[in-house]
Amino acid sequence: MAFVAKRCGVKFDPPSIVLVYEDGKTKKMRQRIMPVRNFSKCSDCSQAAERLKNNARHSAYLQGVSLQQLERLHAVLRDHLRGRTLEQSLASLRLDPDQDLNKLSDEELARRKAQMDVLFERNRKHKDDPDFVYNLEVEFPEVDDREAGSWDESEEGF
């Protein structure tokens, strides 16, 4: 591969995606700043990410960067345009196991679901996989002395 992506980040002013990559020929580390154009606080992050990934000038460099990552970086840029701090923005990208997702807006919920889908896809067995079993049954015998860290607290009258 001509360019090996190493790291990818953002710059707020002007809104840009920054890529650190290795040039396959010279083996030198380089940095590429890709301004994000026509992007406002109302823009659709997945469309913008796709646009950048398919951009004639940048696509060769972005081969090794997933669309999901570009989408997340655009979400950080957009959050900044909306006046959110970087901390708030990153927190919303992280999964908080105690957050009640029932209470989120459609867009926020979609963001969380997209994050969960990463793990889902990673662990997913497809029906074309050689070791795919449609009816996969696994027994988990009840252990008498289960380890601590239970989610049941005695004071809560479940």
Binding site: L119, F120, E121, N123, R124, K125, F132, V133, Y134, N135, L136, E137, V138, F140, V143, R146, E147, G149, S150, W151, D152, F158
Partner: peptide, 26 residues
């Protein structure tokens, strides 16, 4: 390996499953 007492308390069967790898879904 963890106890989920809610099911036991209500007398309900508990299934450990994974929609991703298919464990016990069918």
């Amino acid at each position: 390996q963890r106890n989920f007492n809610f099911a036991k308390k209500q007398g309900l069967p508990l299934y450990y499953v994974s929609a991703a790898d298919g464990t016990n879904v069918v």
